[in-house]
Each structure stands twice: as C-alpha cells, then as structure tokens.
Design a protein around this nucleic acid. Structure first.
Length: 471
RNA sequence: GGCCCGUUCGUCUAGUGGUUAGGACCCAGGGUUUUCAUCUCUGUAACAGGAGUUCGAUUCUCCUACGGGCUACCA
C-alpha cells in the first residue's frame, strides 16, 4: 500500500522550527517510500485564528524547498484541506458515534467543570469529567438541546487498558480509568483536534501519523475513536520534542522559534533543513552534512530517537558557516543581496559584490553578518586611534609613501602584481612580515589583521587603493 | 497531585553482553598563514544511582532518582 503522511498545523502564526522538523520527517518519509504528503490546516479553534498564517506557512516551505503533494495550495475541489470547511463531515460522523452510544451530549457549563476539576485536584485524583450528563433521558436531551449550549463527549470504556504500538516507543498502554470523556464537538459546533484529526486521517487515507511527542498521552483516545468507527489504525510515530537549553519544550520565551526568524538572521534554508533533520534522527554513519535530496535517500523511521533534543544555536551557526563556504558562490551572493541592501550598501556592481562575498563568506557565520564584515570594501574604513599610530610611525609613512608612488607609476594588472610591488619595496627598505603587511593592510582595509593583500587589491581596484593610501 | 514518556561527554549523537565507549559542536593547545579567518592536528569531557540476571553488564530486567510532556469546549 502506498504510504501517505500529513503535516497538520493549526494556523496560529509562523512556521515553528519544531513544526519544520515534524513536516520534514513526514516529507522525507513520503519521498523515501514513494508515497504522498498532505498539508492539512487544522483551523478548528476560531479564537486562535491568525490572519495570513497559511500564506506564511506556505511561503516558508517554499523557501525551504519542501513541497506538499496535496493541500490547500493545489486543490482540485475534490477534498477540502481546511478543517473549518469540513464541518458537515464531522457532523455526519459524530452522529454515528451518538447512535452507537460511543458519544453523548453534555450540558455542563464551564464553571461547573472548573469546580469539579478543583475538587478532584484537591483530592489528588485523576482529573476527568464525572459523567453527569451521561444518563440523561432522550426527552431531557431533546428539551435541553433546544435551549442550552452543549458539547459532545466521547464515552471512554469503563474497565480496560488501551494498548497501541508506536514505531519509536514500541508498546504504550494506559488504563481507561485515566482517560477523560474527551469533548469531540465544541459548543460552537466545531470539532476538537482529537475528533477532526482522526476522522480526517482516516478519510484522507493517512497510513502513518508522525507528530510530536506531546500527543502521546492523548493517542489512546484516538485509538478508541478508530475502534468506535471500525477503522484500521494508522502507524504511530511520536517524535521526540525539541528543547530549550534548559530542556523544557522549545518555546518563544527562550529565543527564536520561527523559521522566518532564522532566515532573517541570515541562516540558509539548507542549514535549517540539515540541522533540524539531525535533531531526533541520525544516519548510519558519522556524516553530518546532508542536502534535502540526500536526506530523502537516507531517512528511516528506525533511526528516530526516543529522547528530546536541545536546539543548539552554536552548532547551527557552525553548520551555517559550512554551507556559506560550500554552496555555489552565485547562490550565496544571491541570498546575501537583501542583507546588503538592508544595510544600504550598493550591490549594483555584481562582479565586485561577488568578490566581496567570496572573501567574506569564510569569515562570517550568517548572511546577516556579511554587510558589517565587508563594509570597508564599500566605504573608506574608519581607523582606530591605535591603528592610526601604527600607520603614522615614520617607518610606516615611508613604506606607504613609496608604495603609493610605485603603484601610481606602474601598470599593475591585479592583486598578484600589487603584492609583488609590496614585496619589492619590503626588500628595498628592509621590512618584512608584520611590519611590512600590517601598515599596508591597515591603510587600505582599516585593520592590521584581515584578508590577503591580493584579495584586497582585486576587490578595491588600483584607484581606490591609491585613494586610501593618500588618506 | 495523577498518568505517560525519557536518561551515553556542557550540547547533538554512534555503539556493544567482553571496545582504550567513537564522531560532531563548544572550549584549550599546536601546525599552516605576513596577520585574522579558513584548513589541519592534539587534548579536556559521558554510559544518573541501586539491585538482579550473567563468567562478564553502559548494553537485558526491576526499583529509585532526575528530567520532560500531558492533565481545556488549544492544538
């Protein structure tokens, strides 16, 4: 049977890196097995809806080059991928459960439930609904339904242990006595996650449910729903959580969580994919650098871990610096342009820009650091007091003066020629090493330490080098 | 509180009933380089604890501790 997986976010903002990891694993598994991946929007909470969330989500995936086979972006009209558009389907299905006695209406209001929870909590008991509305007569239900708001709850069997198999965690079981009569349909008529999720996964033919570990405790409810309907269970794969440095669930409080944030900070899409793939999964060997295509080949469910993984910014930076150096220069140039423009640096001279990016990419860890690290190629650098002392030393003044005259009077083709002149002058006035190179680099680059003189000359050109030697 | 899940260097992780427990990031030191960066080499650093099974457990079982998740008409 063809595998079919899904990524089912609720549209409450931007794509979260945890969401990216879940989406990526689903995507990789679909590609690996030649199956399909569906994007489904779980917008059943009217209160949490965020404008443009779906557009933002799709745009992030576009940038990361992750594509869904089915979803709201390519809808032929046969299936609706927004849960808010599937209300009639849920209505039809909840009726089946009511008819079979596996679900029942409940009229208890929020304050009663709150009091109940408080009472149970004080008694140190499992917090769950007391089934006050379970045994209402047909007449009572009829009458109440006309005047009072109500929800539909699922009726959890009394004495039973629900067992299921998780690909990562193997056997998991829980006693029904611990499970609450979950609300399936809210009083506004919308389904809860648990109900819509199960109905849709079945109707859409989902074979593998891969999601975050936070869903593990509610999986027995889902298993029970499948049984009530007489449907086959999908395979469950609960992914380990992504964690903050303090090992709590990755959250906004402790740093950036949105994929967009990382992109804006100058991390490359390739880095994000590669990095996140290695959180909770590991290949057979020690290899760490993987393109998306390579991951598609390499991925396997068997190598997913059980325990949570801390999102380590240091390693992310390292990996980004690797991609900065490994990716084709044109790609890095193209991706860096917005960052230069943002810093008001002129990007019109593409040949020069290319040289600059090439010289800078191995000195920075993110695209965002690039303008700062290369602004001296655009404008005459500001030289610090200490460095001024260095170039104003008599020895340095003589050196720089000679150098200027030499360049002005010769036809230097490129940086190699420039360096040759530097070496010759060095010989002439008996300067070498730091005392030769530091003043020159400081004069034209602003700092004694930095890129090779050949590179500097090639980027700046003869005219600008003379200009800077003058100052 | 209850339930569920987890636990190998600080972090990401490999691994096995017998290994000097391997790699990567970070950190430290060396080399390369005119310098910085890159690159490269070396080093520091881990099987949570206790029982049991076994000739032998980091590896299997149980218990404890610790950590996390869930405990909504949120997902």
């Amino acid at each position: 049977m063809e595998t079919k997986v899904r990524f089912a976010p609720s549209p409450t903002g931007f794509l979260h890196v945890g969401g990216l990891r879940t989406a990526l694993f689903n995507y990789l598994y679909a590609r690996k097995t030649g199956g399909k991946i569906v994007l489904r929007i779980e917008d059943t909470d009217q209160a949490r809806k965020v404008e443009n969330a779906v557009e933002n989500l799709l745009s992030s995936f576009e940038k990361l080059d992750i594509h869904f086979d089915e979803g709201p972006h390519k809808n032929d009209g046969s299936v609706q991928h927004f849960q808010s558009q599937r209300l009639s389907i849920y209505k039809e299905h909840i009726q089946k459960l009511i008819d079979s006695g596996d679900a029942y209406p409940c009229f208890c209001d929020g304050s009663r439930l709150e009091t109940l929870r408080k009472k149970l909590s004080d008694a140190k008991a499992t917090i769950k609904y007391d089934r006050k509305c379970l045994n209402l007569s047909a007449e009572e239900i009829q009458a109440k339904q006309e005047t009072e708001p109500f929800v539909i709850r699922m009726k959890i069997p009394n004495e039973e242990k629900v067992k299921f198999y998780d690909v990562v965690r193997e056997k998991v079981s829980i006693n029904c006595s611990e499970i609450d009569d979950q609300v399936l349909i809210k009083s506004d008529g919308f389904p809860t996650y648990h109900f819509a999720n199960v109905v849709d996964d079945h109707l859409m033919g989902i074979t593998h449910v891969m999601r975050g570990e936070e869903w593990l405790p509610s999986t027995p409810k889902h298993v029970l729903l499948y049984r009530f309907f007489g449907w086959n269970l999908p395979k469950y794969i609960h992914l380990p959580l992504l964690l903050n440095p303090d090992r709590s669930k990755l959250s906004k409080r402790q740093g950036d969580v949105a994929v967009e944030d990382y992109l804006e900070k100058g991390f490359l899409p390739e880095t994000l994919i590669n990095f996140v793939a290695l959180l909770g999964w590991h290949p057979k060997d020690d290899r760490e650098m993987f393109s998306l295509k390579e991951l598609e080949n390499e991925f396997s469910l068997k190598r997913i871990h059980k325990s949570g993984a801390v999102f380590d910014l240091e390693k992310l930076k390292w990996m980004n610096s690797q991609y900065l150096m490994q990716l084709p220069l044109e790609t890095v140039v193209e991706r860096s342009i917005p960052f230069f423009e943002n810093a008001n640096l002129d990007t019109s001279d593409k040949a020069k820009l290319s040289l600059i990016v090439d010289a800078t990419r191995q000195r920075v860890q993110t695209l965002a650091e690039m303008p700062e690290a290369s602004k001296m190629y655009f404008t005459v650098p500001v030289i610090s007091v200490d460095n001024k002392e260095l170039i104003n030393a008599p020895q340095s003044r003589e050196l720089l003066q000679k150098l200027k005259e030499n360049i002005e009077n010769s036809n230097i083709p490129d940086g190699d020629g420039f360096k040759q002149i530097v070496m010759n002058i060095g010989k002439e006035i008996s300067l070498s090493g730091k005392s030769l190179f530091f003043p020159i680099r400081t004069a034209i680059y602003g700092e004694p330490k930095g890129p090779d003189l050949v590179l500097l000359f090639n980027i700046l050109g003869k005219k600008e080098v003379i200009n800077r030697l003058n100052q």
